[in-house]
Design a binder for these strands. Structure first.
Lengths: 242, 242
DNA sequence: TTCCTGCTATGTCACAGTTAAATGCGGACC
DNA sequence: GGTCCGCATTTAACTGTGACATAGCAGGAA
């Protein structure tokens, strides 16, 4: 049951830049298939080279690095529309692992055809560079949060980030968004211990700012959450969809 | 005193991927000038759009973000060969500020000609995406260090990272490399306080692993420093020069 | 129905790291 | 030569966070 690029549900969202007919046509040829990954599936492995690149169509996942001391740093959360495997595509080797958290459906592209994209579709190549720069920006934001905030601000920051991203994906119903991750995932993203993350989430709940339970994040006070996280403005920037 | 691309001193280094005659020729046309920045100069500002992009030819600088609470997160250290302003070039707006730490000489490119590079030089466009992916990788590494290491490992990690990068740039003389940054810069990169950074540097000196004084980093025990930082392998990957 | 596993929740204590303040030193400027 | 500034260093007091232990709950498997 392949999702036709011409009928891609993500393209309808304001979050993603519009695509020309020519670009859509090229992408429908560039796309070689769909891949459905079950929860826990390792989609890409750190240090490995992959012949496939992906766009997440549905479902959620994680990007993480494993340190030599065994600890895990989550370097990103994959949501619909995210591109997966760029590092393998241009550097030849993934610098982080990717794992499905829920059942995920992904559009599949062959790495061997990436060069054709650069040769024949400079606008798409430019968009790919834009996606890479966006990833860099998101990592910079995360580094700033992890490096300069205390636990309460960190948890506020990550929940606020999820809330905004999931809202922009049209997944917000009455200030509730799906959040199927574990507390350990958030802890490993923010550089906190599991216990401290749990206690901080309890504090946010007790303060009436946000509640995370049963794979659902409910934000009672969006402005307060954003302020706790030292977030300027509310607007997420649009970005290209690959 | 313009540096001719055909005689670029950086191109001689093994750290950078070779360039074809056609690529060098294109770059010498793409380059519009040289810019010399004095220490303290703000080269690019967070939130601003710039009409220029740069490659650092000589000298060192910083990339940083400022949080609403006034704290500063250093998100990168600029060394010769680093590309500056990619986010402005593809996203339209810088997500971090760039400041010169020493006197810096930079090759200047016009952002308006970036599109030509994508249209007429797909190999260079591919290299630019590679550079973006490399920045993403470096930020992921930094996030892992800041998020998962204690103070001693963090300082070891950043000094080891400098030692390797500066050695690859041919700046290592008897296990000594120039390091003209302040302790506050390192503290803001690793998410530590200035006092704790100072104490940790003292501990490394006392352990006979590394000494940083008079803008010079001396690594007495490179393997020990790398082990403290949980760094696998010794080899830095080559990358394209823009 | 029972047992096991994974995840969430809570309490207590120790300490790595922060904050505030003071001192020393070297270089630039008058 | 004296003064001022920026940076490095040190000390003391404090606290946010980690480590450890324990308990509860829900869902899946036997």
């Amino acid at each position: 049951m392949k999702t036709d690029c011409h009928n891609c549900p993500l393209r309808k969202l304001d979050l993603f830049d519009p695509m020309s007919k020519d670009e859509v046509h090229f992408m429908s040829k560039f796309k070689t298939g769909e891949f459905v990954a079950q929860p826990g599936t390792e989609i890409l492995a750190e240090g490995a080279s992959s012949s496939q690149l992906y766009t997440a169509l549905d479902g959620m996942g994680l990007r993480f690095k494993t340190l030599e001391n065994g600890s895990r740093q989550v370097v990103g959360f994959i949501l619909p529309g995210d591109f997966i495997g760029l590092q393998s595509g241009v550097m030849g080797e993934m610098q982080h692992s990717v794992e499905a958290t829920t059942r995920m459906t992904m559009c599949v592209f062959n790495r061997s055809e990436l060069w054709d994209l650069f040769k024949y579709q400079p606008r798409r190549a430019f968009d790919l560079t834009h996606v890479a720069a966006t990833e860099e920006y998101l990592l910079g934001e995360a580094l700033a949060a992890v490096g300069q905030m205390d636990g309460y601000a960190k948890i506020s920051w990550v929940l606020n980030r999820f809330f905004r991203r999931l809202t922009a994906l049209g997944l917000n119903e009455n200030d509730q968004v799906p959040l199927p991750y574990r507390q350990q995932d958030i802890a490993d993203a923010m550089g906190l211990s599991l216990v401290h993350t749990n206690k901080t989430l309890a504090k946010l709940r007790e303060d009436g700012v946000a509640t995370w339970a049963n794979d659902t994040l409910t934000v009672h006070r969006p402005k307060m959450l954003a302020e706790n996280a030292f977030e300027r403005g509310t607007r997420l920037r649009t970005r290209p969809l690959i």
